[in-house]
């Protein structure tokens, strides 16, 4: 079954706030001809982040996205998440997307760790009642103990990471999107985290990971999409 189908997708970012009229002559000419403000919108600068991209992701696929910085990996993830709607082409997604693009989204530095568990949950679409059921498990996993009663701003970055990771990975998802493999905390926690992530990913129907770490991608994914300048240059089904 096809879970995600993209056909000839184009994503373009208009860039505002930079002057498109670099020559003074051009400006004067425009003033002289009485051009209306905003008319230069036709000659605005556009960045083509994805250029007629087509791909299909099937049930059970683990897709790895590779490519240089700025090749369009994150844009592609956001496209699947439904954040960016394509300027041309079509995307069809069947399933509930859980984006792990920012595992801290919704959290607040002033709120306590416990409050942040609920805050993060809400942004992920989980009701407080459901969150309460998972609370013990999350608290246990973070290993933060009484620190959870303190505001997030008092946490070290490693502790904050543990919290964000624990909450974000506590919710089952159909389609999981990850920008870079989550690297969390010290060695001991890392082991726990890797195991948890594996379990979560195993339960998901589709996983898409963007990463620069080729060996990781090879070990985790059965399909690799290589992007270059917003185009898919290579799709390989890895049967390792």
């Amino acid at each position: 079954m096809t879970v995600i189908r993209a056909r000839d997708v184009v994503v373009e970012f208009p860039i505002y706030g930079i002057s498109t009229s670099r020559s003074i002559k051009k400006v004067i000419m425009r003033a002289a001809t009485g051009g209306v403000l905003g008319r230069d919108s036709s000659e605005r600068i556009v960045v083509k982040a994805l250029d007629s991209v087509s791909f299909e992701v099937h049930e059970g696929d683990r897709v790895g996205l590779v490519g240089h910085n700025g090749s369009g990996k994150s844009t592609l993830l956001r496209l699947v998440a439904g954040i960016y709607e394509p300027s041309a082409g079509s995307v069809e997604v069947n399933g509930r997307v859980s984006s792990m693009l920012d595992i801290f989204l919704g959290m607040d530095l002033e709120a306590t760790g416990l409050d942040n568990i609920y805050l993060r949950g809400r942004v992920m679409g989980v009701r407080p009642q459901e969150m309460r059921a998972k609370l013990d498990e999350i608290v246990d996993f973070t290993g933060l103990g009484d620190y959870l009663h303190l505001p997030l701003r008092t946490y070290s970055s490693g502790m904050a990471m543990r919290l964000g990771f624990a909450v974000s990975t506590s919710i089952d998802a159909d389609i999981i999107l990850m920008d870079e493999w989550l690297n969390v905390g010290d060695a001991e926690f890392m082991e726990k985290a890797t195991h948890r992530l594996d379990t979560l990913l195993d339960g998901a129907r589709v996983v898409i990971i963007a990463s620069h770490d080729l060996s990781l991608i090879k070990s985790q994914c059965n399909k690799i999409i290589r992007l270059e300048h917003g185009k898919i240059v290579n799709t390989s089904a890895d049967t390792a």
Binding site: G82, S90, V91, R96, V97, G125, R127
Partner: peptide, 14 residues
């Protein structure tokens, strides 16, 4: 919440 998740799954045919 139902409404929210309804809007979450996006379908370009609409």
């Amino acid at each position: 919440m139902e409404a929210l998740s309804g809007a979450l799954s996006h379908n370009k045919q609409l």
